[in-house]
Nucleic acid binder design. Structure first.
Lengths: 193, 193, 193, 193
DNA sequence: CATGAATGAGAGTTCATTCAT
DNA sequence: GATGAATGAACTCTCATTCAT
């Protein structure tokens, strides 16, 4: 693929991302993409044969552009500080209006259960578990946290975050409610909040 | 509505439930319903104008048929016993193959954010919070549990359950993984497991 | 299928036959059928999923409506008379402008080589061989014809007719040319023409 | 046209011939040509505006490359030998798997009835008639053959060959069946086979 | 009430053809 | 000349929805 068509592909990915953020995955048609991208029907098919293929690229692209969380950590941060930072990042993502793919992601994976280990969603999930677990272990070493099973604790937090995401899409949740959960997590780890 | 047509409606609801359980909400068409119910196209429209209306009734119906959890509680049960029982019921629901509407529910509420307070999903959510909170308070009274904020703890558990449901539909989860989360919850409440 | 929808099906078959006669098989689209039948896009699909299915029915229908050749034979006809009659029927079919499916038939079978023994084309072919062979055998018995191998002679005539049909569609042939071939066939069988 | 572009054209003709042999005429698209030739879409249009134009050249090219049948005739061959040779050449062509354009030829001429006298198919047809007639006349002179009307006999053989070609494409024919027809032809000419 | 044939809007997809580079 | 991205017309097919019976 030439450089030019690479840019066009990128343009489609970026533009389509907005539609997916707006309408979810299942409600988006090739026609929607064509219209928002202002390209021809046939033109889109040069790059993608269906919305699934395109959405995979949208996900990959978003995964790449994910800010590196570690860069946000200041030198003198305690484990609790870091965990708080992490959770506030998640909160920010959840309440973000623009480019929020949460709904589309759920809908896509409901339809396309990932068999392969290389799928974006699982990667993110596992990575989050690893990061949180690491933070907890740091907190344990420093005597900040109390936790018998750091791995399960980390998984618990990630499941909780999934629950918050899902609920924000079904019933809606308030920032306050999210905050209370952050506090609860920290308390569970033995931090006086 | 006559008695006969009431029965017909019930038949449609029950039969359609299977399709929703199988294919989720967004993938189900009026045609699917017509076919599985073996009724005429026009016949279905006498009762329901679209899948949304029908699905609402499916949900209501399932909510009504929800086993009364309290009936399962034995007289000499501790709060931990009761909480365990509750969570195991949830586990059973999650891993149930037949009539599992989880996916359909998510998809429906993604599309139809409930503005009204009378929606089934919110009711269930709030009810679960109430039940768990009650159990925790019983545990606190009996000295079984340690918990500063029973309400937030209850909400935490419900969000967690939502996360487990969602994840079971995207990445899949194992019964073991669910069990570890049950244990973690109990430990967080100060129970030696 | 109800009586009414049976009639509609028949209407589609009859009407579509005209298009196939006009444009052949490969040039006909479902859209063409819809237009000539003056029914809706979806309406046609209630009866036929593609042009192949429809064309099969068109062929069957035409096969059924095939005049019974034997009814044309007069009592005092000689074998040569009968053979002549048969060949003139074929000539009439070939030069018929209306409802001439020859081209469509070729195109259809080029695309759909008939594996099954039950296809219309092979049936017609074999039947023609049988009829001609019978006529030749009658002629042999009566001393009218000379022929060492009636079966091969019959097959020869049928292949020849296929050749005439094909050529009429590619280069075109004149009625005179067809007549000369009829004469030649009779002479080959030892008839003074 | 430059020498280079002449070669390119020849390359396209030769390569496209394979697709036409494989898929017939009507099923071949400009896209197919572009793909098998591994040239650019626009590139093809520099030489041909549609598949018809290209196919005409494919036919011309094949006509040119047609082996000169007369070169195969040995000096002491009888008329029957020569006719047999001719028919066996036709048989070889019919059962050839590679580069067999028979189907494509039929489909092309079904769509493009040749008005002009200069078309390849008619030329070939007339040439064959001439050749066979000549052979028959030689046979008549030598007392080998019996035939009242050499021209009609020749035309009869050519029509028969068309019928064999067409039938090989619709119902299929066996080499044995072809052989029986060869024998029948010779017998009709009074040759003891 | 119930049926199911009929409609037509709209999504998906393919390809001939053009044109800027 | 040559490229291949881009266009848009045309076709296939599916459903929600209606309506005469």
């Amino acid at each position: 693929m030439s450089d030019k068509s690479f840019q066009k592909k990128q343009y489609i990915i970026d533009t389509a991302a907005k539609v997916f953020a707006e309408k979810g995955y299942k409600n988006v048609t090739m026609k929607d993409i064509v219209e928002i991208c202002e390209i021809s029907r046939g033109g889109l098919y040069l790059y993608y044969d269906n919305t699934a293929e395109l959405f995979v690229d949208v996900m990959k692209c978003q995964a790449e552009s994910d800010e590196d969380f570690t860069s946000l950590i200041s030198d003198d941060a305690t484990a609790a500080d870091i965990l708080l930072l992490f959770l506030q990042e998640e909160k920010k993502n959840l309440f973000r209006k623009k480019n929020n793919l949460n709904r589309a992601l759920f809908e896509f994976y409901f339809d396309n259960r990932p068999a392969k280990s290389d799928n974006v969603y699982r990667k993110k999930f596992d990575e989050n578990v690893k990061v949180i677990r690491k933070i907890i272990e740091i907190g344990l070493e420093g005597g900040e946290f109390i936790c018998e099973d750091p791995h399960t604790a980390a998984v618990n937090i990630v499941y909780l975050l999934e629950g918050l995401k899902a609920t924000s899409l079904t019933l809606g949740i308030s920032p306050d409610s999210f905050d209370r959960q952050i506090l609860y997590i920290l308390q569970s780890l033995g931090v006086d909040a």
